[in-house]
Simulated scan of single mutants.
Amino acid sequence: MVENLLTMGGAILFVSYFIPSVVAAVRDHKYMGAVMALNILLGWTFLGWVVALVWSMMGKNENNQMTIINNGDAIKIVKCNHCGEGVDSRVKACYFCQKEQ
């Protein structure tokens, strides 16, 4: 019984150790390799692990567009350069701020 608890606790610690690396990979972080290196090398210290976790969550995802399929038609949505709202890439002015794209 005690050995099972220790094994389960060790597995939970092992998985939680790599949370910053997984977050950076899922978010496609610009500095994913550096976050992973920090996590592996200094993650054993609580401060190193927290810094890696915070860094993995910082910064915008560089992907500023998405595609919506509507009745078989693909509509590319991009972020407005001025207000940040999502607008159809085919329009010349943003629906929200009325500025040219």
Rank of each mutant, 00 (worst) to 15 (best):
G33M: 12
F96S: 09
N39P: 10
A11Y: 07
N39L: 02
L53I: 06
S16Y: 05
V23G: 06
G10S: 09
V22M: 11
K60E: 15
D88Q: 02
V54T: 13
Q65E: 01
Q101D: 01
K92T: 02
L5D: 12
M66E: 07
I69K: 07
I68H: 14
M36T: 03
M57G: 10
K30R: 11
A52D: 05
S16C: 10
A34T: 14
G84M: 00
A24S: 06
G9Q: 02
I19R: 03
K60H: 05
G72L: 03
K92W: 01
M57N: 07
N39T: 06
A34C: 09
N70E: 04
P20G: 04
R90K: 10
R90Q: 13
D73R: 15
V2S: 15
A74L: 13
G84Y: 00
I12N: 01
S56M: 07
G48L: 12
N64Q: 03
L38R: 06
F18W: 09
I19G: 02
W55E: 08
M32E: 13
A93K: 13
N63E: 10
G9S: 09
G84D: 00
K79F: 02
E3D: 14
V35F: 15
F18S: 04
L5A: 06
V87G: 05
V15S: 07
V22L: 15
L53R: 01
V91L: 06
N71K: 08
N63L: 06
E62C: 01
K79G: 01
I75F: 12
V78F: 00
M57P: 03
K92L: 01
L53V: 07
I19Y: 07
K92F: 02
N64F: 02
D28S: 14
F14L: 14
A24C: 08
Y95W: 07
V51S: 04
L6V: 14
G43V: 09
